[in-house]
Amino acid sequence: MLTNKKLPIRIIFVMLILTLNISFLFSQEVNEAGNKLLKEIDRNLSPEAFESLRKIINIEPNGTEKEFVMFTLKKGNNKMVTTFLAPKSEIGRSTLRLDENMWLYIPNVGKPMRITSLQSVIGGIFNNSDIMQLDYSAEYEVTEMIDDNKENLLTLQAKTATVAYDKIKMWIDSKHKIPTKIECYTASGMLIKTLHYKDIKDFGNGIMRPAVLETDSPLHKGYKAIMIYANITARKIDDEVFTLNYMDKIKDLRK
């Protein structure tokens, strides 16, 4: 027999469990919808397998600039390779990414060596992880989704500790389903850099995405870096291209 004194405690307990269950189910639903949206965003940013030509410009506080041009091949959500085409002193310098493994090949050094995503092969604000960015959905899980009249914001959490940024806040252009702004945070919650997607351009074959990615960082005040896409073209690529053997021959794979 339940006593009158125990009844409110039991009711509170049952209500608490119910609330937790409902909120868990609701958050699962949010996560599923968010992750689905994130996959859509990935496909809008690039096809499954593609080649692209990009320019990166590092801008110093006094306005001086240094430019790099790179050719990139990407396949699936875990394979990517880039090689420099300019400036001349950097030609042939290539970076390969297979899941979380990254290697750098420098023509003079003549053999690939392992590097990490937090290093930067070009100096400046863009690090290897920005240049060798795989699909967001491959590395991150959506933990929160805000979709109202004011903003459309996804909060992403890294799936593993090997990902360069622990947490990401992604503002979405809900019409084109592409990011407009991304803030990258460390595990301690410190803002490392902000990426601004700009200049939506039709790259053909249904690829409509920002052609320009600008970044700044509170850690490098006054410095800026810009990544400009000249083309993104869907392409059939053999898996063997993403091996150490091919690293000195990537520029030969341009069509």
């Binding site: 030509l53 320019k55 041009v69 050719f71 085409l85 001349k88 030609i91 000249a230 520029k251 341009r254």
Partner: peptide, 17 residues
């Protein structure tokens, strides 16, 4: 502006550095 001429970086039969 942010455009650049990618024709400069198309593959050529010869290359030198």
């Amino acid at each position: 502006d942010y455009s650049f001429d990618f024709e400069d970086f198309e593959k050529k039969p010869y290359e030198y550095v």
